[in-house]
Design a protein around this nucleic acid. Structure first.
Lengths: 250, 250
DNA sequence: CGGGACTTTGAGCAAATTCAACCATTGTGG
DNA sequence: CCACAATGGTTGAATTTGCTCAAAGTCCCG
């Protein structure tokens, strides 16, 4: 299913030194408990555009993204695609704990993961209620994000969508400890369109427009500089991804 | 905040005889455990259009809908509204467990609830891991539904949206033990529009069109009869709310 | 340096919206 | 009990936003 290299030997020490441990679901486990997770972990690497799993596949594994970027998406029979979310280092992949995946996932550029067998992870969840609680919290966050995205898709204009998207990416990058004003866009215009419910042309035109209005700068196709954050927030409709509220939730 | 009648006295026996207990989160608790939940429960009634809570309010309570219908929604500063979900008997209200509600909720027509103080419910969650597990499962289902809705809002046409919506309502009604071909639409056209990312006019026109195509019948404004389910599924794009897949998830 | 994939830009088009009028149902007061 | 106002729903015409189709530009990467 996917031609990924695996390297199980380094796993145990990996968890100890893992840079994203504190920002991921793993933070629910104490130093002496993390070994149980490490034991069932396989380190995985996916190439650019490589599919991690398909919608409808038996949901045998769950993942923690440790590097790179991932997109989750659903397809209509005629090929129309909706990306339901982008995941980056520290994000959990595989929520919606059903027998079968309800969406597909693929690497945007490259990506690395910790992969956990679902049945073994469930044993661990039973053993450590805090871990389960953390997962519920993660699911809650995902749910709130999904509701924001529904507002975006159902009611925002193209410009508002792009503005919201950039602010959202910027904010998440900041949480991962990166600069907030220089936003990395690892995904293609097609990916952005399929995430925001727009065509690539509209995405492109809207970027150009925001550039003309001097709200952003586009040093490269995969790079945006936010020149006027307040202006961008104003355009975005502001409420949904309000940084203050988002921080207060933690 | 809301002028609801409360009747605490009848609560204990209420849980024992509750008609939706088996289809709701309460099913996670055994006969001898349900008392703990009953103790912290207040029965609540909301009038038509009455707000249950506002986005941004401290999330002090969680709810279980026991009757009637509820809508959850988010607003943009200029008044545009996105309904993120409709809830009916047996559905849980208040997921996205944050300190503050991330959306507003109001009764469609009338509605009744069991209300639980959040802090007390959390004690119960710690005591009964099965209950917490059930809540995680519920959150998972919500998340999968949210992803279906993103596909709908981002990529489906007006006709596909209406068809998906009707099938979805029909399916949920069937799960509550009602007939599947006569679908009740307790909400207004405005509500439907705000849920599907359309205007009331487009909703109305699309209903008329489906009627002309003899896929549905409209005996009354709040009532739809599905004449050609296969045709409706065909229009809907089919994949997302495929009844088979949905049932397999349980 | 050339080819392919991706992105941008342009022109015309279409689906859904906006604006406006009309219709149906319901509830209220005379 | 009826008239009528109010609310909500439907239908029509014009408009608009974003889409489709098309062409040109840019950036990698061999």
């Amino acid at each position: 299913m996917f031609g990924s290299r695996q390297f199980t030997s380094e796993v145990l020490e990996h968890c100890q030194t893992c840079s994203i441990r504190l920002t991921s679901v793993c933070s629910a486990l104490k130093e002496e408990e993390i070994g149980g997770l490490a034991e069932i972990t396989t380190l995985i690497k996916a190439d650019p555009q490589e599919t991690i799993f398909y919608e409808g596949d038996p949901a045998d594994h769950l993942f923690n993204v440790t590097g790179g970027g991932v997109s989750m998406f659903k397809l209509l029979p005629d090929g129309r695609r909706q990306i339901t979310g982008f995941l980056f280092a520290g994000d959990f992949l595989g929520l919606a704990l059903h027998d079968h995946y309800s969406y597909s996932a693929e690497a945007i550029t490259g990506a690395t993961f910790c992969r956990f067998p679902r049945n073994k992870l469930e044993v661990l969840l039973d053993k450590y209620p805090k871990f389960e609680k953390r997962l519920l919290q993660t699911a809650s966050n995902e749910l709130a994000a999904a509701q924001d995205q529904m507002l975006l898709l159902g009611r925002k204009t193209a410009q508002e969508r792009i503005a919201s998207f950039l602010l959202n990416l910027s904010q998440r990058a900041m949480r991962r400890g990166q600069a907030g004003d220089k936003v990395d866009l690892p995904m293609s215009r097609a990916d952005i369109g399929d995430y925001l419910g727009l065509t690539i042309e509209t995405v492109s035109r809207t970027f150009t427009r925001l550039k003309k209005e001097e709200v952003i700068e586009l040093p490269g196709v995969h790079e945006v500089v936010i020149l006027d954050r307040a202006g961008l927030q104003d355009i975005a409709g502001f409420s949904a991804e309000d940084p203050v509220a988002a921080v207060a939730a933690f």
